[in-house]
Nucleic acid binder design. Structure first.
Lengths: 236, 236
DNA sequence: ACCTGAACACCGTTCAAGT
DNA sequence: ACCTGAACACCGTTCAAGT
């Protein structure tokens, strides 16, 4: 009986290895943190932060929601990791150029570009500490550039914060208007302002009919900031 | 029989009005949009945006969650209304002063004060169009001040946006660090940076041990912005 | 007109159980 | 070590029903 069952499975027989499914595939996990994070970024890009759930995320990975918790301890972890992955897309120059102003301006434009690529990211960045390795590396770049330019400690701290906060605040606003029903709410607001021109004369008079040039406004604001930094700290 | 029941309830008898519960209390709704919104602001202040649910909000008003939907059509409505109520706390001067720079600086400080009073508000403002009457009135003030100062249209638009975006971005970051486990994450980050000083020399060298002077950094950044606006537009 | 109650289709997360 | 399944305590919202 025992002998029969042994031979019927032929477990230890010579050559049997080749006909057995690779044990490797069992030892290598189906899910990894990296896979979870990239799937999260894809879903966030497609549907936004409010639509992301652990169940949908697991579905996309052909796994069960509860399986995610082996690799990640909460949904907040997923969001923190996804956000830092986005910061990882910000390209930094290998070394700083001759003009700190150009470096800072270029950094702001690049950060804006990446955040606009992921319309959920800027608003999400407003809700949590940016302490992931990619976010820190980007902060390090700004601080180092400012310190190298000759800014004192107080200016490095204030200017470093101002640069990030201006970009994140601006891109949040832009993402809201660009992705949350582009034409709809904007034209509704335009109509609303026209109807109440007496209450909001300056607003009604300046509100851009065509939607406005986000990039131009952003760049101009960035110029204000660096020009003010230069003037206040006496650096050119 | 019918006569008896009539007299037993004495519905129409003279003097009966005084002993009957006021019909007014039935005709006047228990819930109003205003009550819902102020309760929402209280709960948001106490527990944050993630803890707010329609059920908890209704509980606090001694009503059922489903009753709220008579006065408000979605939870998003509640959030929009609560946020605009906060903007209503921003005090604007009755008329602008002699210096547009002082007016703008004062506005930024006042907006920051109010947003810090409601730590959920700045981050929430990053996620939706700010089109409520109070938010619009505050934008109107900024645009009007800039236009009166002599800024051209492009500068009014860019500077008006920059002012709001800088404040909202800055207060979001400050609220995160001040309210989301004040000491905990900050000291964890300090420790983390110290351990990786080689990776983040500028960051580690400048990271404030005591938590930093948020107000001072904010004010300095505001100065950069208005100084840059003045210089770029050639106005003093 | 305003409020309630039941119901639907979801959530994040825990934990024992499987392999 | 990694994944599944059942379960818990929630969600926002709809809609028929009550008053």
């Amino acid at each position: 009986m025992t002998a029969k069952s042994k031979t019927s499975t032929s477990e230890g027989a010579p050559g049997a290895v080749w006909f057995r499914p690779e044990k490797q595939s069992r030892t290598k996990p189906l899910l990894t943190q990296d896979k979870i994070v990239s799937a999260a970024v894809e879903l966030l890009d497609r549907d936004g932060v409010r639509q992301l759930s652990m169940r949908k995320l697991a579905d996309r990975l052909q796994a069960h929601a509860t399986s995610l918790y082996w690799h990640v301890s909460t949904k907040d972890d997923v969001l923190d990791l996804a956000l830092d992955a986005v910061f990882g897309e910000v390209r930094l120059p290998v070394e700083s150029g001759p003009s700190w102003r150009d470096d800072i301006i270029a950094f702001m434009a690049e950060l804006r570009r990446v955040l606009l690529d992921h319309p959920w990211a800027a608003a999400l960045a407003s809700t949590r500490p940016l302490a992931g390795p990619n976010a820190l590396a980007r902060s390090e770049f700004v601080y180092a550039a400012l310190a190298a330019a000759g800014f004192g400690r107080a200016d490095v701290l204030a200017a470093g914060a101002a640069v990030s906060n201006y970009v994140i605040g601006s891109v949040s606003a832009e993402s809201v208007w660009r992705h949350q029903d582009e034409a709809g709410t904007r034209s509704a607001l335009a109509e609303h302002l026209r109807a109440r021109e007496a209450d909001y004369p300056a607003l009604a008079g300046n509100f851009p009919a065509d939607g406005g040039d986000w990039q131009a406004h952003f760049d101009r604001g960035a110029q204000y900031l660096v020009a003010g930094m230069a003037a206040t700290a006496g650096l050119e």
